[in-house]
Design a protein around this nucleic acid. Sequence first.
DNA 1: CCTACCGATCGGTAGG
DNA 2: CCTACCGATCGGTAGG
Lengths: 197, 197
Amino acid sequence: MVETRRQQIEGVASALFRERGYAATSVRDIAQALNLQGGSLYAHVASKEDVLWSIVCRAAESFAAAARPILDAPGLSASERLRAIARAHVLVVTDDPGNATVFLHEWRFLRDERRAHIAARRDEYEGRFREVIADGIKSGEFAPVDARLAATAMLSALNGIAGWYRPDGPLSAGAVADAYADLFANALTCAPAGDDR
Amino acid sequence: MVETRRQQIEGVASALFRERGYAATSVRDIAQALNLQGGSLYAHVASKEDVLWSIVCRAAESFAAAARPILDAPGLSASERLRAIARAHVLVVTDDPGNATVFLHEWRFLRDERRAHIAARRDEYEGRFREVIADGIKSGEFAPVDARLAATAMLSALNGIAGWYRPDGPLSAGAVADAYADLFANALTCAPAGDDR
DNA sequence: CCTACCGATCGGTAGG
DNA sequence: CCTACCGATCGGTAGG
């Protein structure tokens, strides 16, 4: 595997941004991790924000790419689609929790246009989850919950995985994915407990 | 309402830490918001970290205080307890989303001992959620899910509320609390869809 | 990719 | 609570 300097920079930056946060990580921290002088980084990147931008874009694309085939697949029931999309999301998170964390928490340090662009992509992505839930409600497969709220709750839980998942931990990525998919499929499939009929 | 300078400082610091993050907020930013000179802040606080510490401690105590009576109350079923504790958590978050966000995301900028102390309190708090779920499974009221995973998922979702809730938004705090309580009570009360028996 | 440097800003302090 | 300052560090650049 040939890794370019640029890729190495993004890799260590991703790890450092996750640990300390973007603002608390200096370009010299990144350089030092690669046995470079601080200024030498600028032979490979235009700015510190540029590195963040690359990391965030790659993560955003990973999530979108994982969801696409599931959303495009015909003939799936709402709960099948929900479980599949939840599973796919979890697997992207567990595949690279570092990048996922940076994507989820550090994107707000991007400047105006870039930040707005990512915010829009996130809204769009969350909208897909909402539509899957709304479709399930319309078809009677899901209980009549607030689809927007349910999608937000679900994504918050799924994203939280990035904060604690460790590849060398006791739980496999697949086990976590299944557990979360079950949890939310159940939450939506059953009638609300407070429902009076 | 008489607000001391110290309280004013913590208030604006909480808002700034939420917006920009702790590391990206300077003591001069805080001072400027109060029409003070940068150095003047140190007549009231020992350090920037001290301000963060106060904010985080207050938030931690709010969550603990809200959960205590529910955990101590006798004669509640597991689902009643779960719904009540979820509701209480949501109401603390919505009562002051700024403080909650700082507590949830900026505590890691505390130094060793203080950070460890908060981490321990968080683990303990999460443990209470886990016990409520575990009790419900033991009594047969809840489906036999992984209690630890379910508690983590639930808290991630509840904490996520701090990221988007606005007091002047369309949803009341109580409505959000009920919706989330329903969602998780349902998720746990129904048998897992993937269960084979 | 290094050396040497730029202006700006950082958290914090002394003395009043 | 202000003025004036401290040493340290920041992101980034020039020239090689």
